[in-house]
Design a protein around this nucleic acid. Structure first.
Ligand SMILES: [Mn+2]
Ligand SMILES: [Mn+2]
Ligand SMILES: [Zn+2]
Ligand SMILES: [Zn+2]
Lengths: 141, 141
DNA sequence: ATATCAGATTAGATTCATTCTAAATTATTC
DNA sequence: GAATAATTTAGAATGAATCTAATCTGATAT
């Protein structure tokens, strides 16, 4: 939303606020679609036609490293990205593959004997099933 | 384990039990490592050197469709596979990327207002952090 | 201001995973 | 045992991501 806010979050992490980097961040924050790198490249150049494919990939890598963006774990081919705003879980549609946000709620940890000596940082849930668009179609088949 | 069991699970799903298909299934059932297609191809040909890359991919596709194998959702480049034995969750190491099984336990569903009209089929948890090997190293840095 | 330097960007080549193609092989049905 | 369907195969093609090496930008030092 706020341009100055984006600028500060970048510089707070030691990343220069270049037009290309800013554009990737802004695009991701406006989107709730979990776009692929190709879609981000396309979207960014639609707004301000000045970013190469390599730069888009470089910036996505840097933003993920800085913890401002996350790569969503899905089975498909191309990686999908998500600006780390509010914490949330994900829903993936069996039929159309759409990735949607699900409001965050706390997941109970596994029994400590299943964790063993591992150090747990986070628990993310992936829900699967049929999205709002696909659910009705399925009922009629 | 049981050769006849594998044969039956294949034929029960309408898949012929060919040597190549059998080998993929057997390899996955013995492994707890979530191998990539390339690793499966390599492993299968080590046991019985008679399967092409294309066939390995074809069979993985068929086995996933038949519901006997699942593709694990991870961020990496290559897809990772898992014979669907007992239900379980997954742990992914931040440092080495290893994917490990976590004993199954029931995850509470999200509030029905967050689900909306979606049809929920399953809830899979992905835990992240440091695996048993990587955890000590991290402590000393 | 000018030189120096690190960080970023770029086009294009390269790598790597996966899918496709079309022909050959194998099993099943008639 | 001919006809049919499913499967396998090598190699080509595609697509995503990374790498390379040259250039550009903007900050800092002189
Ligand atoms: Mn999301
Ligand atoms: Mn597993
Ligand atoms: Zn859908
Ligand atoms: Zn590890």
């Amino acid at each position: 939303m706020n341009a100055e806010e984006i600028r500060q979050s970048l510089e707070g992490r030691g990343l220069r606020c270049t037009p290309q980097r800013y554009a990737v961040m802004a695009f991701l924050m406006e989107s709730n679609r979990h776009p692929t790198a190709a879609e981000i490249f396309e979207g960014v150049n639609h707004m301000d036609p000045r970013s190469s494919r390599a730069t888009t990939y470089n910036n996505l890598r840097d933003l993920v490293q800085a913890g401002l963006v996350r790569e969503v774990a899905v089975e498909g081919r191309a990686a999908r990205f998500d600006a780390k705003g509010m914490r949330h879980h994900h829903f993936i549609c069996d039929r159309c593959g759409n990735v949607e946000d699900i409001e965050w709620y706390n997941v109970p940890r596994p029994a400590s004997k299943s964790i063993g000596k591992r150090v747990l940082r986070e628990c993310e849930v992936i829900f699967r099933g049929l999205c709002t668009k696909c659910a009705p179609r399925h009922a009629t088949r």
